[in-house]
Amino acid sequence: MNYIRNIGAYFLMLGWVFRKPRKISIFWRMLMHEVQHIGINSIPIVALMSTFIGAVISLQTASNMDSPLLPAYTVGYITQSSIILEFSPTIISLILAGKVGSNIASEIGTMRITEQIDALEIMGVNSLNYLVFPKVIAAIAYFPVLVIFSMFLGMLGGFAALVISGLQSPETYILGLRSWFDVYNVYYALTKTVAFGFIIVSISSFYGYYVKGGSLDVGKASTKSVVVSSVVILIFNFIITKLMLL
């Protein structure tokens, strides 16, 4: 029962979020701030994760490829496709659900319990539009950038691991990366990413915005938003994959 009510409230919230901002200049300033917050500040963790996991994927693949029937460049191909199809869009989004989602929920939740949201409403500002819309746009615009960056670094990590450890020549690895490369897969990955970005920002905003009580409840809301958005991401990962790849 509670779930159904929450889902209803969530969609009502979205109705208030997607309005034309009252002042474009203020919206623009908020957007730049959010791009900084959601996008730029996430670069280090995305870079670190992607490089190392890319390296590990390629090493694991190489260690499993000892059949002489398989050409050596299969390693590059498998690395490429696991990074593009799943690691960069899904795993990075789950990481960002933890980082960005908890951040948004606690920021908005704190504004709620310190009556800053009431102060906005009193002034006649649509607080959901003012606070959440720029975050949604920033996430939709910037998550794909982060994910493309992650794909690139993941493959680079694989390159470094294989070539530096002398397991493969650069040419073989790159040949593998370019084999059966399908732009549609990138398109599929970025579609997922946009959906996940939207899920993370809207769900964590929802839990922050409707927080009741004190700072303890803000902490709970923040945890809850990470859990719920992660689960929803996994569900939509399945649905989108079914729709787009099969």
Partner: peptide, 12 residues
Amino acid sequence: RQEIGMLFQGSA
């Protein structure tokens, strides 16, 4: 509401 000013208990 644009004609209303409000000072909150916790300043907000």
